[in-house]
Nucleic acid binder design. Structure first.
Lengths: 106, 106
DNA sequence: TTGACATGTCGCTATGTTACGATATAACAG
DNA sequence: CTGTTATATCGTAACATAGCGACATGTCAA
């Protein structure tokens, strides 16, 4: 019964927990849009907030969450703060998501 | 100012909402492990529950969630119910996740 | 200094999610 | 029929999350 030879993939429980945490951070429509935008350039909090149609402080909180996951870094320039992508795998994952959900502009 | 020519990617708000829902469904350690297993073969509820170390009814609820997203289908055989992958993009997305988090067996 | 602007943080409420125990259904053996 | 196994569902309690308004910080201009 243990010799069923189903050769299961190995699974490190800790890794699944970490992966799930990052995916939860990604799993929000506003945050997905922010990732998509930041993969194409750098933006300020205000620019992201306007594009996503949320108040500035809400945008700021979403950005803070993603910064904690290591997705983004930020640099202040004058009174503006620019965010940009720091996690290189975000591009691959976003491509997968886009190919499934954002394909046909309808 | 609108002529800043940042050529933003187009974004269909509905698509981001759908994508976020599916990602939330994926964003759980037990469910990620189930997806990984089912990408390599078909399994019964009991087999998945044992591998993931959760009670059968908890496994059943996770499977139901993922079935609602279209990730899996199920077929009864006697008293067992086998689940298998129905959403072809799951493999690509899982590969992205594995390449980021499940790389080094350590 | 004062005031305006950009961003960040806090406290709260509403809502969603998870896991559990109990119970229900389904298939089968005797 | 009865009992056993496999899976599914329901109600609920603990917990996490999202968004809001108010307030705090930080930068600059006059």
């Amino acid at each position: 019964m243990a010799t069923k030879s189903k050769n299961k993939p190995i699974g490190n429980p800790t890794a699944f927990t970490q992966a799930a945490e990052c995916l939860r951070t990604l799993a929000h429509p506003v945050r997905l849009r922010m990732v998509q935008l930041l993969l194409h350039g750098r933006y300020t909090v205000g620019e992201l907030a306007e594009d996503c149609e949320v108040p500035d402080n809400v945008a700021s909180e979403h950005l803070r969450l993603m910064q904690r996951c290591g997705f983004f870094t930020s640099e202040r320039e004058g009174r503006r703060v620019y965010y940009k992508v720091a996690e290189p795998h975000l591009e691959n994952i976003m491509n997968c998501i886009e190919s499934r959900f954002l394909q046909s502009p309808e």
